[in-house]
Amino acid sequence: APAGAPDTAPAGGTAAQAAAPAGGAPGQVAAHQGETAAGAVSESGARLRPGVFAEPGPPVEIDATELLSCYGLTVWPAEVVRSPEEAVEAAERLGWPVVLKVSDPGASRRAGTVRLGLTGPEMVRHAFDEFADQLGEKVRLAVQRMAPQPAVPTVVGVIEDPAFGPVVSFGLGEVTARLLLDQGFRLAPLTREDAAALVRSVRAAPLLFGEYGYPPVAVDALEELLVRVGRLANDLPEVARLDLDQVLVGESDAMILGARATLRTPAGPRLDGGPRRLS
């Protein structure tokens, strides 16, 4: 590696190896990453092949679960359902208690789109019927097993900035991060030191360290997640935007509850290389 380049790969392995699922070879992972992005972009009519950059096409929004899995990041399981009985069956498979929420990427910003702590079939059916009454019978909902508590909600994102390249953002919760503009930003890729500084850069960071009545949580797992997200952003210029909303940081892990990515065909290769720093 060039002198001064950040050490984003774990000890004893490359970034590709770190992204590989168990039993997968680094070369297979690299191909899978390209296929994931290319396949999603091709749905809009654009073509994306390794080393070939076309004119920018319409952006495509996808569920980012598979893309994140290439980087060793797992999204908390959820199933989309279209009837009360499908919702009950999904809850039985996923395990109780569950959450029922509107299956809409923008729903997290609207009130009344989540029902928490449903512990049995009748509660799930009742919650489904409430959503159907409010939003119509064709509403698409998602069932998700409740994540372990206590946990601190955070939001993690990536945006491809035309001037700076890939930028990773971090904040605590929807309100403090976005409404109160309490977010931190770092240029990708991130070292572990960058991730630690990013976590501590927001005003609400003390909530992660056991202050104000909150339990101390697994900040090291959160920092590892940020490093991997930064690696993804650096590797894939096709990712114009990535939203992990929310990431619950618990006592032993950081759990991604949902993830969406906006992909587009880049007009050309990035002109910069190596570590990026704001001066």
Score class of each variant (00 low, 15 high):
Leu172Trp: 12
Val158Ser: 00
Leu141Val: 03
Ser252Thr: 15
Leu225Glu: 08
Glu223Met: 08
Pro121Ile: 03
Gly184Glu: 04
Thr119Lys: 15
Glu122Arg: 13
Glu85Arg: 09
Gly112Lys: 05
Pro97Asn: 04
Glu251Asp: 01
Gly268Ala: 15
Asp272Thr: 03
Glu85Asn: 09
Val75Cys: 05
Lys101Phe: 11
Leu207Cys: 02
His126Glu: 14
Pro153Phe: 09
Glu238Gly: 02
Val75Phe: 05
Glu223Pro: 09
Ala87Gln: 05
Gly57Asp: 14
Pro237Gly: 01
Thr74His: 13
Ala18Glu: 06
Asp129Glu: 15
Arg178Glu: 15
Pro150Lys: 07
Leu73Met: 05
Gln134Asn: 06
Gly27Ser: 07
Gly106Tyr: 10
Ala16Pro: 10
Gly4Ile: 11
Leu263Asn: 02
Pro56Ile: 00
Ala54Arg: 10
Ala196Ile: 10
Leu198Pro: 10
Ser103Thr: 00
Phe53Ile: 06
Leu116His: 10
Gly120Thr: 02
Gln246Phe: 14
Arg125Lys: 15
Ala38Phe: 01
Pro206Trp: 09
Gly12Arg: 11
Leu278Met: 13
Cys70Trp: 10
Ile256Leu: 12
Leu100Glu: 01
Ala40Pro: 08
Gly51Phe: 03
Leu94Lys: 01
Glu224Thr: 14
Thr14Gln: 10
Pro6Gly: 09
Thr65Ile: 06
Ala11Leu: 15
Ala147Asn: 04
